[in-house]
Amino acid sequence: MPDVLLPFRSLAYNNAWANHRLLAACARLAPGELEAPRTGFFPSLRATLNHILIVDWFYVDALEGGTLGPAAWAEREPCRDIDSLRAAQDAVDRRLLAVVEGLAPGDLDGIVRVHRGSRIQAERRDRLLLHLFEHQIHHRGQAHAMLSGSSVAPPQLDEFFSEGEAPLRAGEFRELGWTEAQIWGTGQA
């Protein structure tokens, strides 16, 4: 019987891994480059990365059953430096991993209540998770493009745990405290 949770689990881990890689690259930026004006939906790398973080806070809180709602974006750039961005993004990525790891197959079509201020939106859990992953990919792509105009080469983000990345991935997974078995399930490579 196929593991219906495997795609969500692998997306959550890949999401956290891509954030780790992107923010590690941003940590190597020269002073002033994180907040330097750039072309994009948000005017800088710092603004783009903060947007990713804020929306993660909003949706992960809803997935956890919380009521944070629009208070998540009360401050447009809550993290002013790369160290605080990395710590905050890592924390919310780990919360998302815990949500996904805690799911049972029947939970995917369950309803999540998303507090939107003046109303509460009822959304299926699987749809909300897919929306969140798409949001991350969309804005990480913008940040990736912004890095192209900086002193730091953008990291590879679209390998999705490919075999060719195994040696680099092993070191990063040690940093993150993960194993292949966690991501793919027992007995899977």
Rank of each mutant, 00 (worst) to 15 (best):
R174Q: 15
Q156G: 05
Q156F: 08
V152L: 12
M146R: 00
L176Y: 07
L176S: 03
E163V: 13
S148W: 09
P155N: 14
R174I: 10
E172Q: 15
Q156S: 07
G177C: 09
E172A: 11
E159N: 06
E172G: 01
L147F: 09
A153N: 07
E134N: 15
G177P: 05
F173H: 11
A143L: 12
H138V: 05
G177M: 06
E172I: 14
A181M: 03
E180I: 07
A166L: 12
A145L: 13
F173W: 12
A181E: 15
L168M: 13
H144D: 11
L132R: 10
P167E: 03
F173E: 00
S148G: 14
I137Y: 04
L168T: 13
Q156H: 06
A166G: 04
R174N: 06
Q136R: 03
S162C: 13
F161R: 01
Q156M: 07
D158E: 06
Q136M: 05
E180L: 12
H144P: 00
S162M: 06
V152A: 13
F173D: 00
P167V: 08
F133N: 07
W178G: 01
P155Q: 12
Q136E: 11
R169Y: 03
G164E: 10
G177A: 12
S148K: 13
Q182Y: 02
H139G: 01
A153L: 12
M146E: 01
P155E: 11
E175W: 01
S151E: 04
